[in-house]
């Protein structure tokens, strides 16, 4: 892990879904509408929730998810909300597959993109286990949250965290944030919210989900892809929030795949040579 890495702690129990973070991100980074014609034609909204963007994209670097959980008999309900973005993974699949060095690790431990180096090959898009990085049709390059690199360089925090009215988003040193997160989980457990746990780092917490369709399921802190510099306090299984329960680096396949390719090449080579030489054997046998 980068010494003094900066990141964010996302406490989903404090999120009210106000989307101030989305607006602040759009404003600070001067991000355009995703599809202006669709917005003007009132067809851009997903229409089944207060979620108005649906997913992260090249122009939506932050996305507030709304998850409604209502029991079939409608006697119990809860509304989970989560402000999502790039996780700035410690082992970042996007960065590792980038063939041009456009994606790079900053001095703050975040993953940024040199826009002038990106060739728009989109390999990183297919490699990200979280579906974060996206191809920008207007520029022919990829975009994602860059953890407000320009603000960090001047000693400021991220625009989204700055705008969050409930402190659901906290910016700071990752080591400090882990302590904040651990204390918050202990506090919630003490209040009887035993479902709270951390997604991104294993801080040693465990509990049981108390509400929703997964009620009674055991949960515990999860360190994924070497740790996430933007990590989450969740109240339900990761899949409920649209997060993979076991995200993997694409490089896990590299050596085995190359090995299978080599073996296949050897088999095909031997088969091919034998096939050509079989003619001679047949002729010899005939003589």
């Amino acid at each position: 892990m980068t010494a003094n890495a900066k990141g964010m702690f996302v406490d989903t129990t404090l999120c009210t879904g106000c989307k101030a973070c989305q607006v602040a991100c759009k404003q600070w980074n001067e991000l355009p509408m995703e599809d202006e014609a669709a917005v003007r034609g009132h067809t851009a909204f997903i229409g089944n929730s207060y979620d108005n963007t649906g997913h992260l994209s090249a122009t939506n670097w932050r996305h507030v998810k709304f998850i409604e959980q209502i029991t079939p008999d409608r006697t119990d309900a809860r509304w989970l909300m989560m402000s999502d973005s790039c996780k700035h993974c410690e082992q970042a699949g996007c960065l590792e597959v980038c063939p041009t060095g456009a994606l790079y690790r900053t001095q703050f431990g975040s993953v940024d993109i040199h826009q002038d180096v990106c060739i728009g090959c989109r390999y990183c898009v297919g490699a990200c286990p979280f579906g974060v990085i996206d191809f920008n049709q207007r520029t022919g390059r990829v975009n994602k949250c860059i953890l407000c690199q320009d603000r960090m360089e001047t000693g400021e925090g991220t625009a989204c965290a700055k705008s969050c009215p409930t402190a659901s988003l906290t910016f700071g040193k990752v080591d400090d944030l882990k302590q904040v997160a651990a204390a918050r989980v202990r506090e919630l457990h003490a209040q009887g919210k035993s479902d709270a746990y951390i997604y991104g780092w294993d801080l040693g917490n465990s509990g049981v989900i108390t509400q929703g369709p997964n009620k009674g399921t055991a949960v515990k802190d999860m360190e994924v892809v070497g740790g996430l510099n933007v990590f989450y306090l969740l109240l339900d299984k990761p899949e409920i929030y649209g997060l993979p329960s076991a995200p993997q680096l694409p490089q896990r396949n590299f050596v085995p795949s190359a090995g299978v390719a080599l073996i296949s090449a050897a088999v095909l080579g031997v088969t091919g040579l034998a096939a050509f030489r079989r003619r001679r054997l047949a002729e010899t046998a005939a003589q």
Binding site: N48, S49, H55, L56, K65, F66, I67, E68, Q69, M82, V125, G126, C128, P129, G131, V132, I133, D134, E239, I240, Y241, G242, L243, P244
Partner: peptide, 9 residues
């Protein structure tokens, strides 16, 4: 409702 996992193409 569960939030979808978006693996982008």
């Amino acid at each position: 409702m569960t939030a979808s996992t978006y693996l982008l193409s």
